[in-house]
Write a protein that binds this DNA or RNA. Structure first.
Lengths: 148, 148
DNA sequence: ATACAAGTTCAAGTCGACTTGAGGTCAAGG
DNA sequence: CCTTGACCTCAAGTCGACTTGAACTTGTAT
């Protein structure tokens, strides 16, 4: 496969693939002239990368999860920790979601005067105190294919 | 209150408060010499801003939610839409979380060979297709006080 | 042989939300 | 009166993950 093929199959732009290669996240099997060639395994690799990004791992973190043979060598404790963190985020987002829904039907002249709204705010903000640098969503578009 | 007081009460650094004022998100009641003075209402305002950030609104979006008298004039439809979006995000994050937990106990030599893992990956990636620019978490630290 | 689309490199730009640094001002305490 | 430290402004820097642009090379079709 050339880079265009991989791009089409994963939905990731070629520039992203080159960037990932530069970062050592993926590797081309070689060159044909100056053009990169990729084996099919790169697709699995990219799928894992997409999952990792969706989970909020940074590219560097994801990079350290691969063994040199291409397998996954993930610290299981880290995985559980990440899952826990995700669930905390989920709880917070649910509080925010509730807050928004409430605000949408609340009759108080100003939400600021609404006790429920106040409670949602504090709930939402409380968890948010954990300083973080991750963004769980940025996954834009990726691997639409790869289902069969 | 001077900026240091607001900073202490909300947990937001003074630089952030100045930045928010510059963006028109908050307003000082006036100056004492060259120093900003803030009224207590700014705390509510900052709480709403924190909630908005937690919900994934951009500062610009949040800014458009305030009326000039300082009340909230939120498009209720937009609120529900945001809540729906949040819930979709939550679902995706839950799938990712499950994927991580599974990976932590999976016996397959490589997760790539594990059918469950594959399913989690596609589930996680599927929803992720919606292109986005928001990051639901970055709320670092904010309003720890404000409970009494 | 020749054109040309598609590949390549490398440096620089983008985006959002802040932070940081340099250099300046001023209210309050000694 | 004078120091001092908190506050001020403005420009520039930061961070992560890419994207973009300019200039160049090459496989492939005619």
């Amino acid at each position: 496969m050339d880079i265009a093929e991989v791009s089409k199959l994963t939905g990731m732009p070629a520039s992203t693939l080159r960037y990932y290669e530069e970062k050592g996240l993926i590797a081309s099997t070689g060159r044909e002239g100056l053009r990169r060639r990729f084996g099919p395994r790169v697709l699995d690799r990219l799928a894992v990368i997409a999952l990792g990004r969706a989970a909020g791992f940074s590219l560097d973190e994801i990079g350290s999860m691969f063994t040199r043979e291409g397998g996954l060598a993930i610290d299981r404790t880290a995985l559980v920790a990440k899952a826990d963190e995700l669930e905390r985020t989920i709880k917070r987002l649910q509080a925010v979601s509730s807050g928004l829904r409430h605000a949408a039907v609340c009759q108080a002249p100003s939400h600021l005067e609404c006790a429920s709204f106040q409670r949602f705010m504090t709930a939402a903000a409380h968890e948010a105190l954990t300083r973080n640098k991750k963004k769980p969503k940025p996954v834009k578009r990726a691997l639409a294919a790869r289902s069969g």
